[in-house]
Amino acid sequence: MEYVLETRDIVKRFGGLTAVDRVSIGVEAGEVLALLGDNGAGKSTLIKLISGVYRPDEGEILMGGKTVRIESPIDALAAGIETIYQDLALAENLDVGANIFLGRERMKRSLGVLKVLDDPSMALEAQKVLDRLDIHIPSLKSTIKTLSGGQRQAVAISRSIYWDAKVLIMDEPTAALGIAEQRKVLNLVRTLKDQGIAIIIISHQMYDVFEVADRLAVMRRGVKVGERVVKDTSPDEVVGLIVGSETVGKH
């Protein structure tokens, strides 16, 4: 098996606290890895290490088998790691196209000299990627403020996809959504998976995990305490791992 993204014995300490302690995980192309654990188990810190928000104290991150240095969010983006945080990180005052191209705006020459924002072409590209993912948004000209939670999630996902993500990390993608919208987002995850993207999902919802994930890794107190193939495990076993009633370090 060939991991697209892999962490090896990665460590992050805050003062005296070791938030992530020698964790090794990996995810393949076209695979969904679920990351589970109680509050404070270190999931978020691990994600932030991968997406460049924090720098690891020890260990390494590999992309396609080669060590990469990820020291800032920009490094992560450049390496093809896109992260969708719970708060989605959308500028609500801007429209869909502007958000998909945020920080990487398309410019065109106006009157031969002046470089100006190329909003029409950004809108066109936005439409293309939305179509590709089968997402319907009433008007691309509307600001994010006017969209529903699921639509916002879709915009955030489209943004990652547009930039050729190899790895997509999603932090609680269904947490703030209604039932119907949760389904749509999960369908979207399957679509992405079929397109060969490696996906890491953090979730509290056991249902989501068993619905879309192929494998799952469980963390407790900064340590990875287990890893399972989804079709070979049961919700009960997973809950046991999360709360710590199983033997530690089985994997």
Partner: peptide, 28 residues
């Protein structure tokens, strides 16, 4: 007016005002 409306600089400062975290994460 042109700078604010049509330039990358202008777009970025709208983004910063709209959601500064998002702007950081978008690499602005």
């Amino acid at each position: 007016a042109f700078v604010l409306r049509r330039s990358r600089f202008g777009r970025h400062i709208y983004a910063i005002g709209g959601n500064s975290d998002a702007a950081v994460r978008a690499g602005i």
